[in-house]
Nucleic acid binder design. Structure first.
Lengths: 158, 158
DNA sequence: TGATTAGTTCGTTACTAACCGAACTAACAA
DNA sequence: TTGTTAGTTCGGTTAGTAACGAACTAATCA
């Protein structure tokens, strides 16, 4: 069972690395997803992941700030330690912001198309860019209400 | 106008770097998006981007294979040169595959939840993971038909 | 006040990725 | 067959990133 857990931690590590996190940041996420109880102290993370305090410190900071607040911590009265855990809420909030990513590509591509048309550059190519843009715009239009639809479904299920 | 074009090329470069491409790969995409006609030879790319032949060669290969076929080339009879251009079709095909990315995260998270439940780990945390999973699953369910809806819209507009 | 604990900061090392130039190959042209 | 052009491959340099240990700080405890 412990061995299986470690395998999961590494697999989560690989997945999250592909999302732009460092290997250790990925393993922290993995460890926190699989630990029981679902939070760990600083020292426990160092020991479990065989990592130095400095590396754990750096990566926890990253995950709490830049890393979209994927990790957060709580404290207990009369206890100096911090207890680190995954914030599923922030995780969800982050993936719901996916349309914003689209928006950025969309905007730049739109500007480029504007430039091409203003300078009367090759029409056929501009036309195919327009098609691509229309896809982005369609998604930008539809995704928010799709997300809302899910929100409502979730409320009803409760 | 030429200056404005270069600014665009760099901006595209930065955007695509954020998507995991190398700086030069990003600039190649930018140059090809803005060039008139909408294709360039190997040498023209070297010169325009002030890059070495080897770097251009490596990055074009990447963009044609691993890079989801974002770039392709064509040839002209009686002309040894290759003409490189953006494949908007492949670009579109690639973003339409977005649900597959979801699928991978979804599968791993599902396995983890299975592990947690099999070992009767903290119920509240597992419950919130379930909520996250339900979002992924909802999107996986709805996105394909949304994409199809766009396809139909496009056909009608023609 | 001094000792301990929790976590941070800093300087270094090891590794990887991006890019370059030079030498090379394959195809055609003279 | 020799030269030229288009592009590739290889080895090396440089820049950037991940991680470490040691020294430090801030808070608590005795």
């Amino acid at each position: 069972m412990e061995a299986q857990k470690k395998v999961f931690v590494e697999r989560v590590g690989v997945r999250t690395e592909m999302m732009g996190y460092s290997p250790l940041a990925g393993r922290i996420i993995g460890a926190l997803l699989l630990s029981e109880p679902p939070y760990m102290t600083f020292d426990a993370l160092c020991e479990y992941l065989n990592a130095s305090k400095s590396s754990i410190s750096t990566n926890l900071h990253f995950l709490m700030k830049e890393g979209t607040g994927l990790v957060e911590y709580f404290t207990l009265p009369g206890d100096r330690k911090r207890y680190f855990k995954i914030s599923i809420d922030n995780w969800l909030r982050h993936i719901k912001e996916m349309p914003k990513e689209f928006q950025n590509s969309n905007d730049l591509l739109g500007e480029i198309l504007g430039y091409r048309e203003a300078n009367q550059l090759d029409g056929e190519f501009s036309h195919s860019i327009k098609k691509l843009l229309s896809f982005y715009e369609f998604m930008l239009d539809k995704l928010p209400s799709l997300i809302e639809e899910w929100e409502e479904k979730i409320i009803l299920e409760k």
